[in-house]
Amino acid sequence: MRRNGYVYLAFAALSLYLLLQSCQGEEAIRKAQYTANGQKLYTSHCQNCHGAKGEGLGALYPPLTDSSYLHEHRDQLACFIKHGLSGPIEVGGKAFDGEMPAMPQLTPIEIAYILTYIGNTFGNTEGFYSQEEVQQALKMCENTAR
């Protein structure tokens, strides 16, 4: 009986540990999964202009390595991708005034993949973008007359 008690205790401890671990690990796993999916989409939709290392090209296409720009505009990035961007902006201390084409065909989950990839590559540490966050962000810009 005493021995069984130890076994139960050990089992309960292990379960608790696994449960905690999985809660913590879930986001990390999702982040890894989103990053992997995002890389494929980045290659086909973004890399031509922004480069394989997010380095941009001259004063034509801005780099994606300016972490503070990404952080400050976190809630606008989804709209940039879906609806495009034009007008003057400053990224990495350089002025850009081109036109980024809209990609209306991208779904919120695809945009979440792309943002998670960009946000955690090229030296960026923005963390995980969920589909919900993207949907919320898109609502904001789709409400303001565009």
Binding site: N48, C49, L57, L60, Y61, E99, P101
Partner: peptide, 8 residues
């Protein structure tokens, strides 16, 4: 304004 191969 080429979005595909020209930038590369």
């Amino acid at each position: 304004s080429c979005p595909s191969i020209c930038p590369i």
